[in-house]
Amino acid sequence: MLAGAAGVAGAALLTGCSDGGGSPDTGGGVPLERRMRETAVRESERLLERYDATAAAHPALAARLAPLRSAVAAHAGALASADAATGRTPGSAPPSASPSSAAAGAPVPSADPVPPKPEEALTALADAERSLAEARTVTLAGAPGELARLLASVAACGAVHAYLLTSPQGDKP
């Protein structure tokens, strides 16, 4: 798992070293970076939903999940906060579903069922983190420089979260 995180970091160094310039893709009238950010925010929101659902189904796991959930909320905020890059004005709501309620800690219902056993629930959450980290790593290739660096960092964090969710060391404070 750590080797995978190192690979993500290496990809970030190679991919994220561009100057962030280049022509924006205006497919559908919405710049590429904005579309990519909106998608990344929605994905982070869905992951927050999974954390909330898991903590609600297994209250004994809530303390263990809290710091990881907090990091995911921070990722959603960072992805949504680039007002200039997304074409929003400061203080305006994001064009996607607002991460403010999810990022602020308000529980959001999850569409995915939580496994009944705590160990299985942690594994399912780790699988969701791992899958999203892999998807974000793939997305790096088409992302503008600054967004690529951010996605690489968030993907590396997701890989670490997956490791912590399934390792025996992850259940220690």
Rank of each mutant, 00 (worst) to 15 (best):
R46N: 12
L125D: 09
L48D: 07
R88G: 05
A156T: 14
L79N: 04
P90I: 08
G16E: 11
G77E: 14
K117R: 15
A148G: 12
R50G: 12
Q169M: 14
G87N: 11
E120T: 06
T39F: 01
A78W: 09
L32V: 09
A9S: 11
T123A: 14
A93Y: 08
S23N: 09
P31L: 02
T89D: 14
A12P: 00
T54W: 00
S96N: 08
E120M: 13
T54F: 04
P107N: 05
L122Y: 03
R64M: 15
G28M: 03
A121G: 10
V108Q: 09
S44L: 10
G27Q: 13
A126E: 03
V114M: 03
R50N: 06
G87Q: 12
C157E: 15
L14R: 13
A155W: 03
A73Y: 05
A82E: 11
L47I: 11
L32T: 12
A162H: 03
P173R: 06
D112C: 05
L164K: 10
V30T: 13
P107Y: 00
E33M: 05
V30F: 01
P67Q: 13
A155R: 04
S18H: 08
K172N: 11
Y163N: 07
H75C: 08
G170C: 04
E49M: 14
P113I: 10
A152E: 04
A102S: 14
L32I: 07
G91S: 06
A124K: 12
T123F: 01
A82I: 02
A6F: 10
L147I: 01
L48C: 10
L164C: 11
A121N: 03
A11M: 14
A162V: 04
P59L: 04
V138F: 04
P118D: 04
A55H: 01
T166N: 05
G105I: 09
A102F: 03
A57G: 03
G29D: 08
V138L: 05
S98W: 00
G145Y: 10
S153W: 03
V114A: 07
G10E: 15
L125V: 05
S167V: 00
R130L: 07
A104H: 06
A5P: 01
A84T: 13
E129I: 00
L122A: 09
S18M: 02
A159D: 10
R34F: 07
L165Y: 06
V72N: 00
S153Q: 10
A66V: 05
D112P: 01
D25M: 00
R34G: 02
P168M: 03
L132Q: 15
P116S: 15
P116N: 05
S23D: 14
A128N: 02
L150T: 15
R42K: 12
H75N: 13
L122K: 08
P115N: 05
E49R: 15
L14N: 11
